[in-house]
Simulated assay, not measured.
Amino acid sequence: MAYDLPARMLRLLSLLQTRRSWGGGELAERLGVTLRTVRRDIERLREMGYPVEATTGTAGGYRLAAGTDMPPLLLDDDEAVAIAIALRTAANEITGLADTALRALAKLEQVLPKRLRHRVTAFDTAAHPMGSLPWAPPGSRVDPAVLATLAVACRDHEIITFDYRTRGGATAARRTEPHALVFEASNWYLLGYDTRHADWRIYRADRLTEPAGTGHRATPRELPATDPAAYVAARLAVAPARHHLHLTVPLDAETAAPRAYALPGRVHRVDDHTSRLDLSSDYPRDIASQLLGLAPEATDITGNPDLAPHLDQLGTFLLDIAEQLTGQEHQRDIQT
């Protein structure tokens, strides 16, 4: 394929950003030009501020190095949307990064093509923050393109189809009227009305594949709650889990909930100074971290025995670290 000069320069820059290094002959073949033309184009990139270094070897090659100034980045559509979503999430969820993330997002959105800008603005409309949980379960990775597709469907009220893997591992096709995306530090959730089961359902986005619009729009249904995030939090609070722990702490509910990273539905007021918490998770480390957030005040603890060996193992690990630190301090005292 033949490229004109501007297109060829963009293609060359894109290639340099995708690999550690390229041979000159490889670049020439990819671009459909001579090695001499590649050398001239490399010089043009250097003049534009891109630090392209020559590499040694049989035929020689090139790589894009880090520079003192940051030249413009070349991103494909999915990469641009992924960065915009990450910046929006950081602005809402990560303490101390809000202002910086919003400034970066504003710069990015200013130069986004219209075809991408509507995907990012759809995400802003569809996404609802929820309280943070301490650990992300293994494998909870979501394709940004999937999130963007879901966000657009939520905004446009377009019925979508997708394959969904349940907690038990079974996969089935779903047809849903999407309502909102809800996120917290661990997972993304799609809240929608399942047309097959005629009921509201919550889907973990990392278990959802091949989302596709049907071209049919649904009249928005009234959610049985005032807030999508609160509705999802309440449903998650009563969802089944492998491990359970119940305890009482001498803290009011407003104080206990954030210290335990607990969903609102799992914190119960006993009186002005006491709360009862129901901690549940498939992952013992989730519960361990919640306990540490409440230490040392937790009392009246009950739960399933299967959780005990996991907590014992984690406790032994912490004790070993404490002994190592104590030994290091003792060694310093001897040396001084």
Score class of each variant (00 low, 15 high):
110 Q>K: 10
311 L>Y: 11
43 E>V: 14
223 L>C: 13
333 D>S: 00
295 A>H: 15
187 N>W: 04
28 A>R: 14
259 R>V: 13
169 G>K: 13
253 A>F: 05
327 G>A: 08
287 I>T: 05
125 T>A: 09
330 H>A: 08
72 P>C: 04
328 Q>V: 03
191 L>Q: 11
9 M>S: 09
157 H>A: 09
245 L>F: 03
24 G>D: 15
130 M>Y: 08
232 V>Y: 13
130 M>H: 12
25 G>H: 12
120 V>P: 01
112 L>F: 13
86 A>T: 10
329 E>N: 03
333 D>H: 04
117 R>S: 03
41 D>G: 07
30 R>Q: 08
219 T>E: 15
22 W>S: 04
116 L>A: 03
33 V>L: 02
112 L>V: 13
167 R>E: 12
319 L>A: 12
190 L>V: 09
89 T>Y: 09
41 D>Q: 03
224 P>C: 10
267 V>G: 04
122 A>N: 03
202 I>P: 07
324 Q>D: 11
83 I>Q: 12
55 T>Q: 13
273 H>I: 05
237 A>P: 02
33 V>C: 15
238 V>A: 03
254 E>R: 04
15 L>R: 04
104 A>V: 05
310 H>E: 15
3 Y>P: 08
231 Y>D: 14
309 P>T: 14
159 I>N: 01
141 R>F: 06
50 Y>E: 08
7 A>G: 01
47 E>H: 07
131 G>D: 15
219 T>D: 14
97 L>W: 08
8 R>Y: 01
125 T>G: 06
234 A>Y: 02
174 R>L: 13
158 E>H: 02
331 Q>D: 04
292 L>C: 14
148 A>Y: 02
109 E>G: 07
35 L>Y: 06
201 R>E: 08
67 G>D: 12
92 N>E: 15
73 L>F: 08
154 C>L: 02
262 A>N: 11
240 P>R: 01
274 T>Q: 03
153 A>M: 08
57 G>M: 04
208 L>A: 03
210 E>G: 11
117 R>Q: 02
161 T>C: 03
197 H>M: 15
147 L>F: 00
219 T>Y: 01
1 M>H: 02
109 E>R: 15
287 I>F: 03
299 T>C: 00
89 T>I: 04
106 A>R: 09
143 D>S: 01
315 G>E: 10
22 W>P: 05
268 H>T: 07
23 G>R: 12
15 L>F: 00
143 D>V: 05
85 I>M: 05
245 L>T: 09
5 L>D: 10
158 E>M: 00
9 M>A: 02
326 T>E: 00
58 T>N: 09
200 W>T: 10
